[in-house]
Amino acid sequence: MFIIGIILITIGVIFSTLGALGLVRMPDLYNRLQTSTKATTLGAFSTIIGVGFLNPAWLIKTIVIATFILLTAPISSHNLARASHKWGIPLSDKTSVDKYDSKTGKEE
């Protein structure tokens, strides 16, 4: 249990840092959402579950917190992506196609 907890927390910390690095390095908003928010989600998930393994009396509570983060993170990043696309944040120059813009005008 103890070893599993330490491994899980180490993985979580590494992914959190990679997510932060992605946030700084990526060229536009959508790619930042991709790399950062979700890498951090796995990072926090793994860290919290790892603490649960280190301290087995807390396991259920930590699973609840981790599941909560796992369920809410995609909703907020999806909402932010749609809002900023409608708000008019441009995509980076590397983007090959954007099929979303034309369709929204037609459907609404």
């Binding site: 959508y30 959402l33 991709q34 979700k38 796992l70 995609p74 990043s77 999806h78 979303y100």
Partner: peptide
């Protein structure tokens, strides 16, 4: 959305 690399807009 949860799998990085793809994001539902």
């Amino acid at each position: 959305t949860l799998t990085p690399g793809t994001l539902t807009v």
